[in-house]
């Protein structure tokens, strides 16, 4: 399904999620696809993670307050492509996400194949 290329330095993907199990599962999926995952479950952890050379960010906004949007802004400032993940879709959420730099909004549950396709195209 995916090509695993050990030799090349794999892309580091920041995953932000208040739910640790989600981070674990997400890390599994990304590892299998040959990426490195950098998990952050709190805003503080997120701040720390910004020091790393991030290629892409996946931000699950559920469980965070409105300050998650500031995080998104900071990613945009650094020109890190960003995907917002949410529990359900709404026009307001869509608008806020795009306004804060999201390339797209993904609704849970995600389909692994689609997610990986999207990541691949964003990293090219």
């Amino acid at each position: 399904m995916t090509q695993y290329n050990e030799s090349a330095q794999s892309a580091l993907i920041l995953t932000v999620d208040a739910n640790r199990r989600n981070l674990e599962v997400l890390a599994q999926v990304l590892h299998q696809a040959g990426y490195r995952a950098l998990p952050a479950s709190t805003i503080a952890a997120f701040d720390q993670a910004l020091e790393e050379p991030i290629s892409l960010a996946l931000v699950d906004v559920s469980g965070f307050g409105s300050n998650i949007w500031q995080c998104c802004e900071r990613l945009r400032e650094r020109a890190v492509p960003l995907l917002v993940i949410a529990a359900r879709n709404s026009a307001a959420l869509q608008q806020a996400s795009v306004a804060h730099g999201a390339r797209s909004v993904l609704i849970k549950p995600l389909v692994v194949r689609e997610l990986l396709g999207l990541i691949r195209s964003l990293l090219q």
């Binding site: 739910n19 199990r21 989600n22 999926v29 993940i85 549950p109 995600l110 692994v112």
Partner: peptide, 14 residues
């Protein structure tokens, strides 16, 4: 006993 369960993917996928 795990407090948290994932919801980012469906169980079928994981």
């Amino acid at each position: 006993t795990e407090v948290e369960t994932y919801d980012i993917f469906s169980p079928a996928e994981v």
